[in-house]
Amino acid sequence: MTDQQQRKVVLSISGVNKTFGGLQALTDINLKIEEGMTHAIIGPNGAGKSTLLNTCIGRITPDSGHIQFEGKDLVAGFTPHAINQLGISRVFQTPEIFPELSILYNVMIPAFARRDGSFKFNPFRSLRKEKEIEDEAMSLLEDFGMADERHHHAGSLARGNKRRLELAMCLIQHPKLLLLDEPTAGMARHDTNRTIELLKKIKLRGMTKVIIEHDMHVVFSLADRISVLAQGAIIAEGAPNEIKGHPKVREAYLGSAVL
């Protein structure tokens, strides 16, 4: 415990509420994500997991409450691109990539955002001079086993591979906080295991992650801490072992599933 108390809190969500029409999507959410941790958020469909991530990246503004990232309040008028520039990257539930561009360029573009900021006017600079970024993208694609396909259109990839590409696009930004919305959904078992290995490697580098996942195999291989969300509220939080045995969690989410 002493070790955990010393850890810096990267993202702190306090008292966040959100309603859509009559639906209470998030109720008084309090969550602290500590540096270097992999924090999993699990819960049944419609529990509000994606909504919670959306409030963190400026896609949804909460009705009340605060979201602080390294001491800055994200609710107070940060646009999505400004939030990304602070160091938060996100993998979406449905892959958001650039389908018309090559796989290599898909990975290079986020690297430009990291280096050049949210706007840079350089119409006369040649892409040939961007060797450094191209090399970085290539080495990342090699890690992902996609180097040979680098000139293919990203749109031609299978869904699971689009998701892995999106993960590569986020990683090249070296984010301080990586948000993953079901990073292995739609992947074959083999690719899922590969992705888990990749995510473990990132963890060794100390990147903080929040991960939403349905696949319990993935959750228990990666997570340091787990929060359980049901009907828009956090009903349990703890280390994986505590969550496994938690009666409320079994009732709300796991049902009779044997872990």
């Binding site: 691109h81 561009l101 573009i109 949210s118 930004q173």
Partner: peptide
């Protein structure tokens, strides 16, 4: 390249840190 990326997926551009 970024102009084409805006055409391809403006949402991704915003969440990738571009204005």
């Amino acid at each position: 390249m970024k102009l084409v990326a805006i055409k391809a997926n403006q949402t991704r551009m915003e969440y990738t840190g571009f204005n």
